[in-house]
């Protein structure tokens, strides 16, 4: 069983808001100094899901990440978790692509990789959170798409998936290959062991450019973008928090209770 996972390197979403700065001119975020980027949380869960499948059914996991050359760091992290191979997709033409452009590049890379049984993506990226690259990619590859998975199993030739819905979950059966987007409910990602870290360090992570995957220039042309970001701003929040006090903490708690009861 061959699983391909698309992962993205993002600004650490847990940074304190005071460190978050943007440049409204370029409509980009200014990465804070000294905070290393991380693998997008949902993508890490997708890697965990694939590792669990590999634990049970054997097989191979290939990671692809589109981004800067630095994306090799997150690819290496996934290798230490248990992925077998990793590829970084880097090209000036890949910068600032919208969801369609991103899905296109990923689809070309997947076609170059060759045969696969399963493609996994995080349900959305932890930075721009567009939540659509996986589905567009699935449509481009022409394979069944299942979103928001919280459990994946292989039964014979089919995939059995639990999908999160509003009031519980659905149990779905899909053929292979399919594309599945993974939600955080799948569970915590494993911590890499010493052996995994050592293997990951030794692995060569190739870099593919547009020409390597046969990506057409017109598909990467920003003039053909489906969507365009026209503004980026940091919402101003008025800090008019009214502090409740009291002579004692118990009194303060009582004062707060009196305020809350009026609101409910």
């Amino acid at each position: 069983m061959h699983t391909i996972i698309c992962v993205k390197q993002v600004l650490d979403p847990e940074i304190p808001p005071a460190k978050f700065k943007i440049d409204p001119e370029t409509k980009k975020v200014i990465p804070p100094a000294g905070v290393p980027p991380v693998i997008s949380v949902f993508d890490e869960r997708a890697v965990e899901a694939a590792c669990r499948l590999k634990d049970k059914n054997k097989g191979k996991i290939t990671i692809i990440s589109m981004g800067s050359a630095k994306a090799a760091d997150v690819v290496r992290h996934t290798l230490s978790m248990g992925a077998d191979d990793g590829i970084v997709l880097t090209d000036d033409a890949f910068e600032n692509l919208d969801s369609f452009g991103t899905a296109y590049v990923l689809s070309k890379a997947i076609k170059k990789i060759g045969a696969f049984d399963l493609v996994l993506c995080g349900r959305q990226a932890a930075d721009w959170g567009a939540g659509q690259v996986g589905s567009i990619l699935g449509e481009m590859l022409g394979i069944p798409i299942i979103t928001l998975a919280c459990n994946i199993e292989v039964t014979g030739q089919a995939l059995k998936i639990r999908r999160i819905v509003r009031d519980g979950f659905e149990v779905l059966e899909a053929p292979m290959p399919s594309l599945i987007t993974v939600s955080s409910e799948i569970g915590l990602p494993r911590l890499p062991g010493g052996m995994g870290l050592m293997m990951a360090r030794r692995k060569v992570i190739p870099t593919w450019k547009a020409v390597d995957i046969g990506a057409e220039a017109a598909m990467l042309d920003k003039a053909n973008s489906h969507t365009e970001v026209t503004g980026l701003s940091v919402p101003t929040r008025k800090s008019e928090c009214e502090m409740i006090t009291g002579v004692t903490l118990v009194e303060a708690a009582g004062n707060l209770a009196a305020r809350i009861i009026k609101l409910v």
Binding site: L11, F20, K27, T227, V229, T230, S233, V234
Partner: peptide, 17 residues
Amino acid sequence: RPVYGGNARATMVAKAA
């Protein structure tokens, strides 16, 4: 729409699509 976990807001348009 909110981006970066709510740290920022983005406005988006689709010009031709």
